[in-house]
Amino acid sequence: MKSIPNYHSYFNSGERKGYSGVATFSKAKPKNQINGFNILKFDTEGRVQRSDFDDFILLNIYFPNGGMSDERLQYKLQFYDAFLTYTNNLRDEGNNLVICGDLNTAHKPIDIARPKENEKVSGFLPIEREWIDKFLSNGYVDTFRMFNDKSEQYTWWSYRTRARDRNVGWRLDYFFVNEEFKDNVIDSYMLSDVMGSDHCPIGLKIDL
């Protein structure tokens, strides 16, 4: 991982090289920068970064994939629950939150090209999707759906089947904010034409 000129660069690498990790690059220097939940079994995978700014806390999260085994699915669900506890505690302290990252779950049938074929596949399992419902019911907003209710809007496509050429994808990447902060959101969008990964970038514009 490399720093970018004119940006403050922060990294959180997992212990297993090439497996997981997150990086945050910011022109404005955060007041505070923290890696992890302070929960060892999650923090060893380098999935969490917190950056404190004047008006909000940015959480940069790489959520686990549950597809390799039932053990990893349980790990993913435990991570989800720990994350919700963490964000609710931050809100209870009076903070606004901007949450971004690869959730590794498509929320609704509109968020996946082939919902019927993937009902028993991790990333679209009912138990995973129900957790997103629970998360939103706790007072969080899926910002993309504030502006775009169309289907066939995806952020990930499998390399193995050249799925991007046919737009057979999943919407796995999200920007969330707490409900109290949603009026500050000006736009939330995808940059689906940007290549270089099996994911495309997503963007969020906020008014402070």
Results as ranks from 00 to 15, higher is better:
49 Q>S: 12
41 K>L: 12
57 I>G: 00
46 G>R: 01
48 V>H: 15
57 I>T: 07
84 L>G: 01
57 I>K: 02
93 E>A: 14
27 K>T: 15
83 F>A: 04
36 G>C: 01
71 E>R: 09
40 L>F: 08
72 R>C: 06
77 L>S: 05
65 N>K: 13
91 R>C: 09
89 N>D: 03
72 R>M: 06
89 N>M: 03
10 Y>V: 08
16 R>W: 10
63 F>C: 05
72 R>N: 07
28 A>L: 13
16 R>P: 01
42 F>K: 02
89 N>L: 15
47 R>W: 04
53 F>R: 02
49 Q>P: 02
91 R>E: 12
54 D>N: 15
46 G>Y: 00
58 L>D: 03
60 N>D: 04
33 Q>D: 03
64 P>S: 06
40 L>S: 12
86 Y>S: 08
76 K>F: 10
25 F>Y: 13
82 A>D: 07
16 R>I: 09
83 F>W: 14
74 Q>C: 06
32 N>K: 11
29 K>Q: 08
82 A>K: 10
86 Y>M: 07
91 R>V: 09
33 Q>Y: 14
61 I>F: 08
26 S>H: 04
46 G>Q: 06
32 N>G: 12
59 L>R: 03
83 F>L: 15
62 Y>W: 13
87 T>V: 14
64 P>K: 06
62 Y>V: 02
78 Q>N: 09
31 K>A: 14
91 R>D: 12
93 E>Q: 14
61 I>L: 15
20 S>A: 15
39 I>F: 03
47 R>C: 09
81 D>C: 11
61 I>S: 00
35 N>G: 06
35 N>M: 05
61 I>N: 01
31 K>P: 02
82 A>S: 10
75 Y>G: 00
93 E>T: 13
87 T>C: 11
87 T>D: 01
84 L>K: 01
29 K>A: 15
20 S>C: 04
59 L>I: 10
9 S>M: 15
64 P>T: 01
46 G>N: 01
45 E>K: 08
53 F>Q: 04
27 K>M: 10
34 I>L: 13
90 L>N: 06
80 Y>S: 00
81 D>A: 15
9 S>R: 07
34 I>K: 03
88 N>V: 02
34 I>R: 07
60 N>E: 07
83 F>V: 05
17 K>L: 10
80 Y>D: 05
86 Y>N: 01
30 P>T: 13
77 L>M: 12
61 I>C: 10
91 R>L: 12
49 Q>C: 09
38 N>V: 15
39 I>W: 05
33 Q>V: 01
47 R>Q: 04
26 S>N: 10
63 F>I: 10
43 D>N: 05
